[in-house]
Design a protein around this nucleic acid. Structure first.
Lengths: 93, 93
DNA sequence: TGGTAGCATGTCGGATATGACATAGGCTTC
DNA sequence: GAAGCCTATGTCATATCCGACATGCTACCA
């Protein structure tokens, strides 16, 4: 990590968080075999915005990302894992 | 938990997250012996907004809360802990 | 008693994120 | 190759959030 394009440490952290949440969203969505449109309808948004969420577009807030994740059934723990950067697969057994 | 004032599960989660972040912010700030005004100056905001952050006012975004926490030296892990609801004291065993 | 410091709360104009929409590209299937 | 999905990207009006400011409150101290 540490791409360093003139970002301060905290800006970088914020970007990474957004990225991890975005990845988590896409993972969760595809795992549930939903389209972006499905998700959009569920959270009262639009397909284009969901696409932007998954692209970690700076113009989408972390609030919205989290709200969307929750509406997909993610719990606080899952969200926390994403923010921390360790999201993906739980060791099942 | 489960206050249930007509909140959906995910709304409740969001409120709790904000609350935990707010508490974490206050804890971090007081631990560093800073005033709200100090914090405000550091993040380019105002004392009143910091007060609202710590009050978990619904009118303050989680984005801002997180940015402020980061600027106080909190890392992603700390933020994740707050979101998950286990910030402050860990009972190790 | 006055003065100062710190925090809470309300309001406001301006900044930013939002949903909606249009549209384009990719990938199937017919 | 046309038609249908799914996704990506850009724009726009509006809703929401923001910093700034005013003001009130408590506590502390001279």
């Amino acid at each position: 990590m540490q791409e360093f394009l003139g970002l301060t440490q905290e800006e970088a952290s914020l970007v990474e968080m957004r990225l991890c949440l975005a990845n988590g969203l896409r993972t969760l969505r595809t795992k549930q075999a939903l389209t972006q449109k499905d998700v959009a309808r569920r959270v009262g948004s639009s397909q284009s915005r969901v696409a932007k969420m998954e692209a970690a577009d700076p113009a989408v807030s972390i609030d919205l990302l989290i709200r969307t994740l929750l509406s997909l059934g993610a719990g606080r723990e899952a969200v926390a894992d994403m923010i921390e950067g360790r999201f993906g697969q739980e060791a099942p057994s």
